[in-house]
Write a protein that binds this DNA or RNA. Structure first.
Lengths: 123, 123
DNA sequence: CGACTATATCGATGGTTGTCAATATTGGGC
DNA sequence: GCCCAATATTGACAACCATCGATATAGTCG
């Protein structure tokens, strides 16, 4: 019913009798905010968004670095850097086959982030 | 079935992501990536996440600056700055009443962002 | 082994950002 | 009109970040 945005599942708010409006719904705590911000920061770059998007749209949902350089139009070291950031944040995994490095989406990662941001009753 | 992640909805809706029912498995284009990154960047800060959360959890879903300073533990100018960033990104609105400034969530903003990140079939 | 290829790491650099103190602005009360 | 409270803006500074060229690493093929 009420907004359940970014809430923390602390729950000990049974204290006050159920009133009407969402009075003291718990807000996100500092640690969790830090963690969420870390992940959002990894995605908050146009190049990285494109990389994730390209990987997701690729056949087999995987792509090797050589396929990614040309589409984003940046240098190979820069692309490698972005891929590392996305890996460290838990959005991609890497598997090397021969000289090539193939990147894949981590299955639930984006969906989980999406859920965290969601508002059950937006408006 | 297929991943529909970060897809572009084409169209010329410049006023923000129109979302919903993507047409293609096309990858996100540069312009849209830029736009999405801009919004994500606004959220990708622990303090701003906490501010949004507190506003969302407040009675009436609005809060004035004076209520926000103490919880986040930063200076008043810094809090004002963060609120401005969130407003510019379209997540909050401000309404002044007397000397006080009340901030509210923009109804669909977070949900829309959430949808954009979602993977329809994240495996 | 030696040449070549794909990718990662390093170092430097210009640009962005989070923060604060100081100051400006705006509205209310006397 | 004058003072005070709430908020916004400005200026400065340190930390961080995206990017590149150069270089290192590792795998392949002859």
């Amino acid at each position: 019913m009420s907004t359940t945005l970014l809430q923390i599942t602390d729950v000990s708010d049974t204290t006050g009798a159920a009133c009407c409006t969402p009075l003291t719904r718990e807000t996100i705590d500092a640690d969790r905010a830090e963690e969420l911000a870390r992940k959002l920061k990894a995605l908050a770059d146009p190049t990285r968004l494109r990389l994730v998007s390209i990987v997701a749209a690729s056949a087999g949902e995987e792509a090797c670095v050589c396929d990614l350089i040309e589409p984003v139009g940046l240098s190979q070291p820069t692309v490698s850097h972005h891929l590392k950031v996305l890996m460290d944040a838990g959005f991609l995994t890497r598997s090397k086959r021969g000289t090539w490095a193939y990147y894949r989406l981590v299955p639930g990662a984006l969906g989980q982030l999406s859920q965290l941001l969601d508002v059950t009753a937006s408006r």
